[in-house]
């Protein structure tokens, strides 16, 4: 009896069949958003870390403020601010755009700090060797230091990228039709919790392989040592 009720409410076959296409559509949105956020966030973050390497006071200061504020604020606060605040001053963005922009910037902030830590941890001798062969500062940064720095910080970078792409679920709050957004709609229409089960499964299918891959990466990196 208990079990029957559970199955009926959480794995109701009729509901599952009816809403699976919707959840799949949501999964497409989640994956698309995730890819866009990872590409934009990591590129922007690495770019800012490089800019900081030139040690121009005004730039460095601005970058640190940017990184600190975006790391300190809950993403949901930023999402609400952008979605409900900006239209009041005439900037109207779609919920998809707001979610993409906010999470890309948040990932950029974390990536900047992580890549910058990698740049500062690259031995001074690498700069010296590169400069002694006539490479310019920019060339030494691009060809010698940055590749090593990025390699060093791939595990924390991967973890952070996964954590932030998972936050695409926050899009539900402003009506992005991603997995969770579709599932909550379906749940209220069907008066049944099965769409939520489906959503949880969808997230596990998308993110569990990434989590396992990141674990594997981390293991490989710590075994190799410095």
């Amino acid at each position: 009896m208990q079990m029957d009720m559970f199955l009926d409410q959480f794995l109701n076959q009729a509901v599952l069949v009816k809403y699976t296409p919707l959840i799949l559509k949501g999964a497409g949105v989640t994956v698309l958003l995730s890819v866009l956020i990872v590409l934009t966030g990591l590129t922007l973050g690495a770019g800012l870390a490089c800019l900081r390497a030139y040690r121009i006071k005004a730039f460095s200061f601005a970058i640190v403020i940017f990184a600190d504020v975006l790391r300190a604020l809950p993403p949901l606060v930023l999402i609400l601010l952008a979605f409900f605040g900006l239209p009041n001053i005439g900037v109207v963005l779609s919920s998809f755009t707001v979610l993409f922009l906010v999470l890309s910037l948040v990932l950029a902030a974390f990536a900047e700090e992580i890549v910058w830590a990698g740049i500062t941890a690259t031995p001074k001798g690498q700069w010296e060797a590169a400069r002694s062969t006539g490479l310019t500062f920019t060339q030494a940064l691009c060809y010698v230091v940055l590749p090593q720095a990025v390699r060093m910080v791939i595990p924390p970078l991967t973890n952070r990228a996964i954590a932030i792409t998972k936050m695409t679920a926050l899009g539900m709050v402003i009506g992005v039709p991603d997995i969770l957004g579709q599932a909550t709609t379906a749940q209220s229409f069907s008066a049944n919790a099965s769409p939520l089960t489906l959503a949880a499964i969808a997230y596990v299918v998308i993110f569990l392989p990434l989590v396992i891959a990141s674990r594997w990466l981390e293991q490989r990196f710590t075994q190799k040592g410095s």
Binding site: P123, Q126, E128, A129, G134, Q148
Partner: peptide, 17 residues
Amino acid sequence: NKMRQRIGMVFQSFNLY
């Protein structure tokens, strides 16, 4: 950078990439 091409340097800790 032009001048440094004319001066090769070998380091104690190799500093290979």
